[in-house]
């Protein structure tokens, strides 16, 4: 098999340090829902955003199956993830990480929500958005001092996910080189 040249480039130049900074940004985002952070260090092939690429290279490896949804399930991205992460590419039900735009990821009920005795065995969705701003849906819960706002692609799906707590999937929202976190613990309301 032959790989496209762009499948083999665009990774971290200094993985230990760059992935450490990327993880701190992701940790900051997930532990403070509504906060939008910028990340850098990778240049993934289209249609994957820089932020989604950074998350995959920081968190995914041979032990974490990845699902590519919709238009993201293309040869160059499959090759890029295989080359840089070594992650198995799988269907939605077996995925630890799932990447795509919201319409392709929907219905999100097909992703793992963990088990009652092991709620950590759940999927993490990386949702690619056209715009990501600290406005829109009203967020409350752990990590939020008072109220936060975030431009979510959906309300009902995240409300249903919260109702499953402590089960449920966790979400990163990505747009360009910026990302925000939405753990299952966050309560979402339309404004």
């Amino acid at each position: 098999m032959s790989l496209a040249p762009q499948a083999m480039t665009g990774g971290f130049a200094d993985a230990p340090v760059q992935s450490a900074r990327a993880f701190r940004a992701a940790l900051d985002a997930l532990s403070r829902p509504g906060r939008i952070v910028a990340v850098e260090g990778v240049q993934p092939p289209a249609p994957l955003s820089v932020a989604a690429g950074v998350l995959l290279l920081t968190l995914a490896d041979g032990t974490t199956p990845v699902h590519l949804a919709g238009a993201f399930d293309c040869a160059v991205l499959r090759d890029w993830i295989t080359f840089h992460c070594g992650a198995p590419l799988v269907g939605s039900d077996a995925a630890t990480f799932a990447v795509g735009d919201w319409s392709a990821l929907h219905p999100v009920g097909r992703f793992a929500i963990g088990r009652a005795d092991y709620p950590d065995r759940s999927a993490t969705l990386i949702v690619e958005l056209d715009h990501l701003t600290a406005a829109g849906a009203r967020l409350t819960g752990p990590g939020i001092a008072d109220v936060a706002h975030l431009s979510l692609p959906d309300i009902a799906a995240f409300q249903h996910n919260r109702a499953l707590f402590p089960l449920g999937f966790d979400t990163f929202l990505t747009c360009g080189d910026r990302l925000a976190g939405l753990p299952r613990s966050t309560r979402v309301e339309a404004v």
Binding site: F23, A26, L27, L30, S31, T58, L59, T64, P119, D120, S122, T124, P142, G143, F165, P166, D170, P183, R184, S185
Partner: peptide
């Protein structure tokens, strides 16, 4: 470890 920390944050 980072994946475990993120899941821990999601389920306090």
């Amino acid at each position: 470890i980072r994946r475990a920390i993120l899941k821990g944050v999601a389920v306090p």
